[in-house]
Design a protein around this nucleic acid. Sequence first.
DNA 1: TGTTTATCTTAACAAAAATCAACCGATAAA
DNA 2: TTTATCGGTTGATTTTTGTTAAGATAAACA
Lengths: 194, 194
Amino acid sequence: MQQIRAYLSAITPVSDGDWEKISSHLKILSIPKNSVLLKEGQVCNDVYFVVKGLVRLYVVADGKQICRQFFFENSFVSAYDSFLSKQPSKTSADVLEDTTLYYFNHADIQYFYEQIPTFQLIGRVLAENMFIKISERVNSFLTESPELRYTQLVTNRPKVLQRIPQYMIASYLGITPEHLSRIRKKMAGNKASG
Amino acid sequence: MQQIRAYLSAITPVSDGDWEKISSHLKILSIPKNSVLLKEGQVCNDVYFVVKGLVRLYVVADGKQICRQFFFENSFVSAYDSFLSKQPSKTSADVLEDTTLYYFNHADIQYFYEQIPTFQLIGRVLAENMFIKISERVNSFLTESPELRYTQLVTNRPKVLQRIPQYMIASYLGITPEHLSRIRKKMAGNKASG
DNA sequence: TGTTTATCTTAACAAAAATCAACCGATAAA
DNA sequence: TTTATCGGTTGATTTTTGTTAAGATAAACA
């Protein structure tokens, strides 16, 4: 639980009183690998904080699951568009390992916004940070080849390589598993000869 | 200027006193077609509101300009990642028509956050909305073909078609101008025969 | 342990998209 | 008016990526 306080404190100081208000609303959830957190069509009513394990957001297109993002320990995750708009989510969520989460719901957060003056600042910075991260993802689709996107992933997010099956990484990169396999083969060859 | 007040009031009520504080910091800028607003490598220090005309954000890759987004009348625009982080921007900005803008800088916004309690809420909602919009763009790259991305653009953002040259739209969709031309030809054919 | 299932790789082929180059039409400049 | 220039189109070709199908590896499980 102190992980969350530390996370929020990095944005703005959290007093003991404020933390009491927040922590008293936190619920904990431990679920095994492959458990579903949110199904497409449901309204997302919760924001999760990953303590242990890993959450995946994905969309289904042409019957295939396409991974939007992976969230590891010490990060917040939600189908935030659905959460904010209260519209049915196009995104689904599940966990790829045995996972422990803290979470709070829409009403909790409304309460925080009303009762904790600095929580507006926290909410803003969290949204800003999400925006910055996803902006980089758009940039990578616009300016980088799949091969470069993969090498960037290797250097910037090694955890993804270590903990997520390759066919899911392929969908995250916007390519087929077969194509990613070829990219890896090609890179291995280059590395050996160069 | 009332456009801005209306825009913000749609998020949360803006009192006369708050509006006085905000509007007294607004600066206006009228610039001709093709003027540069921000060059790659500069730190973005301003947030603009488009009164008339149209702003383009783009990145340069392999010597080519690739359009990230277009902003028409009645919208806020900034290289927001650079603005927030105060790091040199990878994104450039210019105007594609004679354009009139209101703008305020980083210090102005800090002042708003400190002096106007509800401005934190406004900043949060603006960031949330930007996040939701760009999320849809990521989704479109992950799940849609270039042809579908184009047809979606035709139906959802006709202004883009009307006011922006085709080769820029192509880069926005992540394809070459030649390919977009072929997509259009194919669609015109389908329409005639279907 | 052996057996099943999931994941990854490989190859042959097909489709999609990029590249290269020529050309057309409209607009702007001389 | 003539001449450049720019944006768009088209065709031929190459490159990239997807599809299909088969086999290899490895993990999960009885």
